[in-house]
């Protein structure tokens, strides 16, 4: 069979069996996983959560990861975010090999490269919105005035400049998540990882948050990797992936 014939056959196959989710054209990968496996131990019994997983996330993409509970979504997110290390395989994120990096190296790397958004917002209740957003900047050498300025800018991006002196208890769930997003972007990270960012929100607030994430992706060119159970949220991403029994499908 000639090359042209082979290509034609592959195109036919693809047309007959389209991928279940949209993908976007390849660009340089900011996240690269090669043969990654993760095994936990429940007592002495090994539990294989991820198994020989390969993944490339192009820079500037907005990807959604879905899958049933226990499929390994959060484990994968933790590996990409440098919160955990794989049992085997290699992980490279934002040009850094995280596979064997020390805890200290990972902590510093996370503070410079990753923005976190959690389902439960996880704001410090004793700090105002502005102070919560300023929190990651305390690890930098920036002076107080500059930190404040950047935190104000981040809050402006998420549309909460008029709530900066409010405490979390004085904000709605959607507003709290916006503050969390401002905190995630204040140190200008390359990647934002979001674990069920709309899981605790009503439909309207969830839409607003997803719109904000789209804006961060399109206007600020942030790479976003989002774990979600919500098909509507997943639809807003430019790439959808499904994880089941430790394998990407």
């Amino acid at each position: 069979m000639s090359d042209a014939q082979a290509e034609g056959k592959a195109a036919d196959e693809a047309a007959k069996n389209p991928p279940p989710y949209r993908t976007q054209p390849e660009s340089p990968a900011i996240v690269s996983l090669v043969g990654v496996g993760k095994t936990f131990f429940r007592g002495k019994e090994p539990v294989k959560v991820l198994d020989g997983l390969d993944l490339d996330v192009p820079e500037g993409s907005f990807e959604a990861l879905m899958g049933p509970s226990g499929s390994g979504k959060s484990t994968l997110l933790n590996l990409i975010a440098g919160l955990d290390r794989p049992t085997r395989g290699k992980i490279t994120v934002a040009g850094t090999d995280l596979t064997n990096a020390s805890d200290r190296t990972l902590a510093k790397w996370r503070s410079q490269n990753i923005g976190f958004i959690f389902q439960a917002y996880n704001l410090m209740p004793v700090l105002t919105a502005l102070q919560n957003v300023e929190l990651p900047l305390l690890l930098t050498s920036l002076g107080g005035a500059e930190r404040k300025k950047r935190a104000q800018t981040a809050l402006r991006v998420v549309g909460l400049e008029d709530r900066m002196h409010h405490y979390p208890r004085q904000l709605s769930g959607g507003q709290e998540q916006r503050v969390a997003i401002a905190r995630a972007i204040v140190n200008d990270p390359k990647i934002i990882v979001a674990d069920e960012p709309t899981g605790d929100l009503d439909r309207q607030s969830a839409d607003d948050i997803l719109t904000l994430l789209e804006k961060l992706n399109k206007e600020l060119k942030k790479t976003i990797f989002m774990v979600t159970h919500d098909p509507a949220a997943s639809e807003r991403a430019s790439v959808q992936r499904r994880l089941d029994k430790g394998r990407l499908k």
Binding site: A107, R110, S111, F118, L139, R183
Partner: peptide, 14 residues
Amino acid sequence: TGEYGVLRAIGFLP
């Protein structure tokens, strides 16, 4: 404990 986890996640050290 969860809050300390968040602080550690965003780069704070032990």
